[in-house]
Design a protein around this nucleic acid. Structure first.
Lengths: 104, 104
DNA sequence: ATATCATATGACGCATTGGTCATTTTTAAT
DNA sequence: ATTAAAAATGACCAATGCGTCATATGATAT
């Protein structure tokens, strides 16, 4: 079981589009179009990936008129910011292994 | 940059074969054949994935005669056991969302 | 030197994933 | 009721990832 949930978690976030969306939603809740303009990804792309995030419990939606406002699930928010810390550690370790290129 | 390292980390572990190998190496260091028999994966499969794990800094090798003994990078070991804790949290959350099926 | 054991590598094929385009659904405004 | 705005969906295609099979490399023992 452990693995299924890890795979789900990792799979969701190891995609640039979804990762970016999640990071945007870390700041504030947004509608689909707002996410589009902030991310510069096209609408259907954002929608498809929001659906995925919704299915996996990463985000919640609330509908106001014709805007669907997406927010990061507040429990996920905590979890993700903790993961962020770990990743920074991991980054440092990867650099030691010369896996990651230095930024230009 | 953050994303690249996350993707690397997540990508490596969101594969059943590698995940299993890592979990086996959490217990003790092993040769390729030992990993094969413990995991029931065939040799080339294990080798390919060990190479990946090696490239990403997850594991180290030491050669004794014709045995190549793989061990979990000790820094990674800490990191992974911390991640394990988070995943348990995440699992609980996913269950609340009815994403994960109950075990049979 | 040859045979055998342990591991690594390469090439190929299948399956999965993800993005795009076009279209549809839903809601609000006039 | 029609139009326009906002979001969702479906189908298709391209790219990627992964496992398998066959083969190669390296190391030890005889």
């Amino acid at each position: 079981m452990m693995y299924e949930s890890f795979k789900l978690f990792a799979g969701v976030l190891s995609n640039r589009t979804r990762f970016d969306i999640v990071m945007l939603l870390m700041k504030k809740e947004m509608s689909v179009l707002e996410l589009c303009s902030e991310s510069a990804y096209e609408q259907s792309r954002v929608s498809h990936n929001l659906k995925c995030l919704l299915n996996c419990g990463f985000v919640d939606v609330e509908q106001h008129g014709r805007r669907h406002v997406y927010s990061l699930n507040h429990e996920m928010k905590d979890l993700i910011s903790e993961i962020e810390n770990h990743i920074q550690l991991y980054e440092a370790r990867l650099r030691k292994c010369d896996i990651l290129r230095e930024e230009t």
